[in-house]
Amino acid sequence: MAVALPAVVEELLSEMAAAVQESARIPDEHLLSLKFVFGSSAIQALDLVDRQTITLISSPSGRRVYQVLGSSGKTYICLASCHYCSCPAFAFLVLRKSESLLCKHLLAVYLSQVVRTCQQLCVSDKQLTDIFLMEKRQEN
């Protein structure tokens, strides 16, 4: 299984984005589909979006990365270009066990793109490097 979302999930997310554009809210049937596909992660991810815990960090270089403040108070990074979150659930349930498609943080990032409620933060190129490197240090 590749590190990408199945087409059906991509489709759901883009339908949600279209609906949000039109009516400024996520229709109930989409919320139900979300719950059906992702189980309890769906609720947790929506909660992360509601609490505005997702920040899109960018530098003048144009490189970007998402930072999510988890419920435990720890921050995790989610790469903007491919499927990766630095949280333990992603490492274990997604990568090692293949039990989940994604963790709640990544789902929250995708949902924040749908509802366009992401915090934005501009940092220097050097600071962005440190954010990428910090993730590595935390793992050790």
């Binding site: 903007a80 491919c82 993730e135």
Partner: peptide, 13 residues
């Protein structure tokens, strides 16, 4: 394994 995943993901990024 976490390290390998981050390295692979960073290469893609």
């Amino acid at each position: 394994a976490e390290e390998s995943a981050y390295l692979a993901a960073l290469l893609l990024d």
